[in-house]
Amino acid sequence: MKGYPPPVRRLIAEFSKFPGIGEKTAARLATFVLQSSESDMARLAECIMDVKKKIKICEVCYNLTEKEVCEICSDPSRDKGVIGVVEDTDTLVAIEESGGFHGTYHVLHGVLSPAEGIGPDQLRITELVKRIREEGVREVFIATNPSVQGESTALLIKRMLEGFPLVVTRIGMGVPVGGSLKYVDKMTMAKAIEFRRGV
């Protein structure tokens, strides 16, 4: 990258810090910046700074928000008696996009991961228990991934909620809509049978 002038080299170096971006992709992005209009790039820079300055964590559910309390938590039409527990904000967005959940959320910001040394102290589990104790929740819907880490996190939450007068539910697992049963792996098939329901 020696052929580029120093400001472009610095930009490439900054882009290279992004996840999944190597030096060549960073150089392509830098070229795009060079070719774009000044107003477009000013808008991009403003967006980046807005995100850094304005976005904080919701003090109720730990979702991303511009205010003290996020839009979902302050929406009177949401069912506050049901809490959907998710690993991260990306999962929250995916569930919101489905339009199938009308409760509120609790974002853990991670899952149990023994290999990486991530234990319950690094997750927002005690905050969840405190919230349940204070808010009179009827149902906790655990929507962590169906992986070893996601499952063990769900088991820990279930254990911690034993004795509370509420229902703990787990997100359904099984064959994807529009999929073909004969191509489903045996583990997914076993889960689909376990999670079968009446019709």
Partner: peptide, 14 residues
């Protein structure tokens, strides 16, 4: 080992 720390942390919590 990190996994042992997590194991002990969960045990303490539960």
């Amino acid at each position: 080992l990190k996994s042992l720390n997590v194991l002990m942390e969960v045990k303490h919590l539960t």
